[in-house]
Amino acid sequence: MKRLLVALPLLIVIVIGGFLLWGLNPERDPNAIPSVLISQPAPEFDLPPLEGIGVPGLARSDLTETGEPVVVNVFASWCVPCRAEHAELTRMVRDDGVRLMGINYKDKPKDALRWLNNLGNPYERIGTDLDGRAGIEWGISGVPETFIVDGSGTVLYRYVGPVVGDEAVEKLSTALAQVRANAGAGS
């Protein structure tokens, strides 16, 4: 009994040490917060269009009956990484046939319009979220963020930060391909 008792501190320390070692795993990002939306229906929101761009606004109802997976991207003209990401998203729309929806987060419509006119508009629909309330509904912590929503409006994937660089693009493409494959198998 006493032997066991004096070995107890050692055992506890070993267990804690195991957790600490796990925590150092380079794949783990201590700052990442999992989205509560995953596998949930897209949140309730209804945003007016960006005047002058010529594409309609975005609401939850636009996501529930698409019949195929779409990508929802939260962006803003004041967000520097968004500019870098924009080129990548445009390429995905052009080359991979991605359907891209945009939420213009807390932006001045004038700035957003100029930004999109300069860089081109890859978005099929754009909702303007002036007060950031839709952003909160989506549980975003900053811009940019990118979601994959399946044909029936269920959120399946979320990427935090700009989709820039091979690793990020790879992650998003893989997730999209998987969603597409599942949708194909299901129908």
Binding site: D29, W78, C79, K106, G142, G161, P162
Partner: peptide
């Protein structure tokens, strides 16, 4: 995401809404 890009990203957020 690397720490540096994360930092840059947070920085943007802070600048955007003083």
């Amino acid at each position: 995401m690397t720490m540096r890009s994360l930092a840059a990203y947070l920085f943007v957020l802070l600048l955007a809404f003083p």
